[in-house]
Amino acid sequence: MPVAAPRRAGRRRRLGLLLIGAVLLFALLGPWLIGIDPARQVLADSLQPPGLQHLLGTDVLGRSVLARLAHAAQLSLGLALLAAITAAVPGVLLGVAASWHGGAVERALVMLADAVMSVPGLLLVVLFAALAPGQHWALYLGLSLSLWVEYFRVSRAVARPVLAGDAVQASRLLGFGGAYLLRRHLLPALAPVLATLLAFSTAQSVLSLAALGVVGVGLQPPTPELGLMMIEFLPHYEEAPWLIAAPVLLLMGLVLGMMLLAGEREVQP
Rank of each mutant, 00 (worst) to 15 (best):
R14Q: 14
L15D: 03
G16W: 08
G16P: 08
G16A: 11
L18C: 11
I20V: 11
I20H: 04
I20D: 03
G21E: 02
G21D: 05
V23M: 09
L24N: 02
L24M: 10
A27E: 10
A27W: 08
L28Y: 07
L28W: 09
L28I: 15
L29T: 12
G30W: 10
P31Q: 13
G35A: 12
G35V: 11
I36F: 07
D37Q: 12
D37I: 11
P38R: 14
P38Q: 09
R40I: 01
R40L: 12
R40Y: 15
R40W: 12
Q41V: 11
L43V: 13
A44D: 11
A44P: 04
D45F: 11
Q48H: 11
Q48L: 13
P50V: 01
P50D: 02
P50K: 02
G51H: 05
Q53C: 00
Q53V: 00
L55M: 03
L55F: 02
T58A: 02
T58C: 02
V60C: 00
V60D: 10
L61Q: 09
G62C: 05
R63F: 07
V65I: 05
V65R: 01
L66D: 00
L66F: 02
L66H: 01
R68S: 10
A70C: 14
A70Y: 12
H71G: 01
A73W: 05
Q74M: 04
Q74F: 06
Q74N: 05
S76A: 14
S76R: 08
L77V: 12
L79M: 10
A80F: 11
A80K: 09
I85R: 00
I85F: 13
I85T: 04
T86Y: 01
A87I: 03
A88W: 00
P90N: 05
G91W: 11
G91V: 12
G91R: 13
V92T: 15
L94W: 12
L94Y: 13
A97V: 15
A97Q: 14
S99R: 13
W100C: 07
H101Q: 14
G102S: 14
G102H: 13
G102D: 10
A104I: 15
A104E: 15
A104K: 15
V105D: 09
E106W: 12
E106D: 15
E106T: 09
E106N: 14
R107Y: 12
R107S: 14
A108Y: 08
A108K: 07
L109P: 06
V110F: 03
V110Q: 08
V110R: 07
V110S: 04
L112M: 06
A113I: 00
D114K: 01
D114E: 12
D114V: 00
A115M: 07
A115I: 07
V116L: 07
V116W: 09
M117L: 13
V119M: 13
